[in-house]
Design a protein around this nucleic acid. Sequence first.
DNA 1: AAATGATTTAACCATATGGTTAACAAAAAT
DNA 2: ATTTTTGTTAACCATATGGTTAAATCATTT
Lengths: 200, 200
Amino acid sequence: MQDPSTEQKILEAAISIFQKKGMAGTRMQEIADEAKINKAMLHYYFRSKQRLFEAVFMQAFQQLAPHVNEIFNADATVFEKVESFVDKYISFVLVNPYIPSFLIQEINNNPKFAQTFFSAHGVPDPSQFEQQIAEEIQQGILKPIDPKQFLLNLFSLTAFSFAANGLVKGLLNIDNETFMMMMEERKKLIPELIINSIKR
Amino acid sequence: MQDPSTEQKILEAAISIFQKKGMAGTRMQEIADEAKINKAMLHYYFRSKQRLFEAVFMQAFQQLAPHVNEIFNADATVFEKVESFVDKYISFVLVNPYIPSFLIQEINNNPKFAQTFFSAHGVPDPSQFEQQIAEEIQQGILKPIDPKQFLLNLFSLTAFSFAANGLVKGLLNIDNETFMMMMEERKKLIPELIINSIKR
DNA sequence: AAATGATTTAACCATATGGTTAACAAAAAT
DNA sequence: ATTTTTGTTAACCATATGGTTAAATCATTT
């Protein structure tokens, strides 16, 4: 059997480098150095840069997708799911700060790859959640709103700070410590703002 | 004198390629092909890839900065400036859809360059706007809010859709036409949401 | 212990890539 | 008209980069 620790070391190094520098900005040698192994091992275990990148992309996507799937499909009220989503997403991303910008960047830079990837592995499907929104509007719980605009507001408020981390810190003139404190505050702030905007 | 049209052709081609593929993903030859000129001309007019990139980055930044400066420093009420900012920003970015993701990506991928660039050219300074927020809170126009969180909400709601264009379209399952219509709607939707959340 | 198979390494290889140069052409200045 | 400056091109160069290979080492099986 193969030694799992080498493959694991490679993947961890690749995650660290790819997430910070992206596909185009990453050098195989840099991953090898980070993992402290011979460059040939990257190809031995992952065949090519593209394949290794795909493993990293997959891993990142599969970590974020459950959060989106939960708000799309879980059996709870919209209010409850908004609170849960914001809290869990921010907590997760505070520990994995490069994942949002990495995914967004690679999808933007390589639409064809994204298309192929999503066709093969599927994207979370918002239709059930949109149905739920329609029902809660019927029941008089929610104002009449466009569910897609609502989702866009939610994702924007939650993800932008991390996706545009560098720019946000520059424009607001804050250091990383302040940023992290603000993100903790946003766990309450965003649900309040969002829920207030949709409740009857 | 030099023929301005060649230098201009290069810059336009560079803008087109760099904004879509980023510094690391761009090839000088690709810019030359796009501009339909010899690759040596890129170096004749711009010396190096880095310098050409900086010209593109600068051009992008200088187009966005005035919008931010206006909300930070213009002499109008917070409500007025929110409405104006959202409308102008979305209008501008609908025509220049790659600028937000380009700036965000390059700042994230190259923090050192960003640092140097901002030190040399300056970032819009939010302090005066924060002062104005404090005053309007005193006057009972606004609820007590954190001005930085408020700005973050505004920027998030306005910029995220463009910064994460590909992901947004994938997750919401919308085509480009629908996206553009939604962005037009957001010119009214975002100010309503934002202003509602801060007015007394 | 010998044989077999998996893992690791250093040296290579082909190509891509940013950048340069020398010759040439076109304008401008004299 | 001739010299000088500016603009343009094709060929070239050095290095970086993704990827391969043959030999060596290590582990497992028999």
